[in-house]
Design a protein around this nucleic acid. Structure first.
Lengths: 330, 330
DNA sequence: ATGAAAGCGCTAACAC
DNA sequence: GTGTTAGCGCTTTCAT
């Protein structure tokens, strides 16, 4: 705590100004003295007080990231990659978890604004919540904000996500091609963009392909338990393929159905979405649609940086392609 | 950005000092004026600049948390609970991920110190790395530091973890009681406290119980893949029980062995450790040893707060009990 | 090439 | 009760 620029200045027999300049690599200061000062500063274990620094610089050097959940492997991976991408930029990352609760999310956004993050990557909660109040705060604050992994359908915000619509459509086409025509889609509550896109895509594809049947079940939750329990009530013999909107749900379906003696894919095919670990750790690897999580993380980070440069308010939109990953369950 | 305390003061026709006092709930200021000021401040969307505030208060109001990985469910859960616990304390949490890399860890610690976190919760990397250099930095910085989920064997640091030794011992005793006497323990490289505790406990229990056999295999990694691949080389018919040092490894073993036609637990029993989701999402739920992750998170947070209060340097050690969770795999 | 001094936005004595 | 003022530790003109 104790050692400040003043102490270094005294020890080096120069003024505080010179120390500051030297440490910040200004060309104004003699290379000799600079080296001397740097050495002294290091030996004294001096690090500039970031709060004083930020106060005068008026830049926090911090980028914020908000995710709905950290136990969700999908977001965990996203966080990891953003963390990596930011490490080389000179900015620091501050991570907040909304626990998929809009109130929490609003509080967090307010905190991020109060703390003067310079840019914000926002993965919105996955429950119906369009046009939350904080959007105007965000606009007023002039903090460049980028929706990631999902979005609200409002103008003026940048966004980076995968082509969920395209991904699901490809999956349904592929299933049809494999001869599956009676499909059940297991999804969550309506109203979240990232989920709705998948559902709409499935429905659209079904219509285009003239599928015999594509039913949609909206579970209360997109969790393992929700699916595992629901399997009891679902007349699986009416379908030849089961599509889940994420991999964990697909795994739940797989486990539940095989427990009941069904064979996958012989009796019924199962497909997931996202391509996170859960589609790989079932006894039979699951067909799924891969989201380019690392790509989104990198793109989002780059977008944040370029918005930070841009003097004029801009909005960037990146839609990354999804990739069908065919495994043994279909 | 723009609006500062000065603006509020002007708008309310009082001095900056009064605004400051009013907003910080000092009893010195008239209740009438306080309300008036608060209202004005809100209407102006004023929030105090935290950097100016922290500069004068000399308190950052931030607690740091370092974890080796965020994709690891165990740590993700820990992070979630710390996040929750801290929310009600008035402190903010800043999360960093070391990616299980000692160099990263050292950098992060340095950053945490530079950023003046008031306390640090440190979940160390899980690879041999005793007495890292930054320990002295940490001591010099006088930042109360608490090792969580694992630790280094050094004095002067607080720590919160579960009784891994006791947990593993209980598991081996239980297995013996169920008639399993030829046990294989799958663990990772030596040198990490949290892993070594488990191994030593298993060995100790085996000796105490006079087990026919307890072999230990040190895999290069405690991951799904490491186990899944290793199953090929392991003469499973020599053992009647397989114990893994985490649940994901146990799941890998389960998947691999059942793929090879073995029945669990008839042909071989499988147990994991931690009691995270992976022990529950195998077709047959896996016996495991539960760590009280939420308890650790809460305890760690409380410890941090009390160290923050304590004017004198103290060290706290909390060892929480593990709980045997018996499921169908044994 | 270096130093003096002002000021970033806020808090806390101390005066009134 | 409220205002005045002096910093907190740093950066950055502007002089020298």
């Amino acid at each position: 705590m104790a050692v400040g620029i003043k102490d270094v200045a005294r020890a080096a027999n120069v003024s505080e100004a010179t120390v500051s300049l030297a440490l910040n690599g200004s060309p104004l200061v003699n290379e000799q003295t600079r080296q001397r000062i740097i050495k002294i500063a290091q030996s004294m274990n001096y690090t500039p007080n970031p709060y004083a620094r930020q106060l005068v610089l008026k830049r926090s050097g911090v980028i914020g990231l908000v995710v709905p959940s950290i136990e969700n492997y999908y977001y965990a991976t996203f966080v990891k990659h953003v963390n990596r991408a930011i490490r080389s930029t000179g900015y620091r990352l501050t991570i907040s978890i909304s626990e998929n609760d809009p109130e929490n999310e609003a509080k967090i956004i307010q905190e991020m604004i109060n703390n003067r993050v310079e840019a914000l990557l926002l993965a919105p909660v996955n429950i119906p919540n369009d046009q939350p109040d904080y959007l105007s705060l965000l606009i007023d604050s002039e903090i460049p904000t980028i929706f990631v992994t999902s979005r609200y359908l409002v103008d003026g915000f940048s966004c980076v996500m995968c082509d969920l619509f395209g991904g699901m459509k490809t999956l349904i086409y592929y299933l049809n091609n494999r001869g599956y025509n009676n499909t059940l889609l297991l999804t969550g509550p309506q109203g979240s963009y990232a989920l709705d896109q998948r559902t709409e895509a499935a429905l659209t594809a079904a219509k285009q392909l003239n599928l015999t049947r594509l039913d949609v079940v909206n579970l209360p939750d997109v969790t393992y338990e929700a699916v595992y329990e629901s399997m009891e009530y679902i007349k699986t013999d009416e379908y030849d393929a089961l599509v889940c909107v994420n991999d964990m749900m697909a795994l739940a379906a797989y486990n539940s159905l095989t427990m009941r003696g069904l064979k996958v894919p012989q009796d019924i095919a199962i497909a997931g979405f996202d391509d996170v670990i859960f589609s790989q750790i079932s006894p039979i690897p699951l067909t799924t649609v891969a989201q380019d999580i690392e790509g989104m993380a990198k793109t989002a980070t780059e977008s944040a940086l370029s918005l930070l440069q841009a003097k004029t308010a801009t909005t960037l939109e990146s839609i990354l392609p999804c990739k069908l990953v065919i495994r043994k369950s279909t």
